[in-house]
């Protein structure tokens, strides 16, 4: 089958309109989870079906798309989704953060600060920050509606009581514009400060059928205690390849004798720094 057998960006126009309405509502109410009629996509749930639908609804033919998975452009998930849109939308693609207009991401925010011309689309496995604290979805929606968020701090309290510090390292809960508590998808808490960004950030959860958004320059505060403030920690090493000390690092096991190295998780950031140094 050739690419021309698809509508632009795979989804039909009615579906894209439906998703765009959900996105607009999400932008109007920052952090609020908007239900939408998620479609079956040609990939399994958990592989980014929500992000793909949001991206499909945002793309225009002039866009330049970048897809990252855990910061890397060259992993299976990123490569597959990039190919998917190359085939179904025929849009240009890039690995350079600065050149992209739409970036779909799984579990990272690029190190390079984003601009007002960019859209960052997150793949979200579990949109409900209260899910593992309150099993009833009816009750969690009520808690969001009534701004009844004491339970979120109970979780942080438990962390400190058990580990001596807030041990939540990813999917760290944030409060958006002083109102909704939001799960920022499983990004490391190192990335939480970057949620206050110039770019539009959209979150799509396909299986859970929810879309939410953080508009540009929205206030995003990581929850904490007065005497245990939020700490965006990272591994205490420089990148072994580019020497960066300010980027989030992956630990890579390099042999079976305990050898390991720390490298930037954002491959484009790392490559850009090495090019500049060369």
């Amino acid at each position: 089958m050739s690419g021309t057998d698809y509508n632009f960006a795979y989804l039909d126009e009615q579906t894209k309109r439906m998703i765009r309405r959900a996105i607009l509502k999400g932008v109007a109410v920052p952090g609020y989870q908007v239900p939408f009629a998620s479609r079956e996509m040609p990939m399994p749930y958990g592989w980014g079906t929500g992000g793909v639908q949001v991206t499909a609804a945002c793309l225009v033919p002039e866009d330049r798309l970048k897809v990252i998975d855990q910061g890397a452009d060259d992993t299976t998930n990123a490569v597959s989704i990039r190919k998917f849109f190359q085939k179904t939308a025929g849009v240009a693609v890039t690995e350079r953060t600065a050149e992209a207009t739409v970036i779909q991401t799984r579990h990272r925010i690029p190190e390079l600060p984003l601009t007002e011309d960019q859209i960052l689309v997150y793949q979200v496995p579990i949109p409900e920050p209260l899910r593992f604290l309150e099993p009833s979805e009816v009750e969690t929606r009520k808690m969001h509606a009534l701004e009844d968020y004491g339970l979120m701090h109970v979780k942080l309290y438990e962390d400190i009581a058990r580990h001596g510090e807030i041990a939540t390292a990813y999917a760290y809960p944030v409060k958006v514009e002083g109102r909704y508590v939001m799960d920022p998808s499983p990004i490391p808490k190192f990335d939480n400060p970057k949620l206050e960004s110039a770019a539009l950030q959209l979150f799509g959860a396909g299986r859970e059928q929810r879309i939410y958004a953080v508009p540009p320059y929205t206030r995003v505060v990581s929850l904490d205690f007065e005497d245990h403030p939020f700490d965006p920690s990272k591994a205490a090493h420089p990148c072994a390849l580019c020497g960066a000390e300010d980027s989030y690092l992956d630990e890579v096991i390099v042999d079976d004798a305990g050898g390991r190295m720390f490298v930037c998780s954002d491959t484009d950031y790392c490559a850009g720094r090495r090019e500049a140094a060369a």
């Binding site: 009844d148 339970l151 701090h153 109970v154 309290y157 438990e158 205690f225 007065e226 005497d227």
Partner: peptide, 26 residues
Amino acid sequence: RMRISAGGNVGERLMAVGARHYGEIR
């Protein structure tokens, strides 16, 4: 809440009404 420590159980109401100081809650 059976899966939350005794201290967390007692502290929940405090946190629900806005207590945000771990040491004091504890």
